[in-house]
Amino acid sequence: MIVPHLDAAYTLARYLLRDAEDARDAVQDACLRALKYMATFRGDDPRAWFMAIVRNTCHTRLSTRRRGDQATAFDEETHSPVDDAGGDELPPALHRIPPASVRDAVDALPIEFREAIILREIHGYSYSEIATVVGVPVGTVMSRLARARRRLRDVLGPRAGEGVRS
């Protein structure tokens, strides 16, 4: 119940933590924890169980990061909408021209909104699967998603997404 979901686990960790090295460590930690507790697993959805472990591992790392380095965390999360990922793709000046990229906008969302958007739009999970992974009621998932999308549209402007048809 671990190996088939490694890619999904890494994708979640990478976009939640916004750091490739942190994501690698988080996925490995989560797998070891899953192996450790696998024998006690009694639910009917092993994937959601495993992904919840991945999600919780990421949350722990994020809060440790915030506690351990207040100034950096503050800087990262509040002052700059741009993180390391976008750094080498565009000259710095272009980052300031609105609208920001969709990825920047998602990265800037509060963690509760970000994880809902990632699990829904990238992983394609149903509301009830997201509820299991995140550990909140389905209604909360629904309202977080709606609010997250509204926020993204506000940040990205009325033209966001236009012409992005495939």
Partner: peptide
């Protein structure tokens, strides 16, 4: 379209 744009910029890895 927002969903499409997110998947385009943040693909499954």
């Amino acid at each position: 379209e927002l969903g499409t744009a997110i998947r385009r910029e943040m693909p499954a890895l």
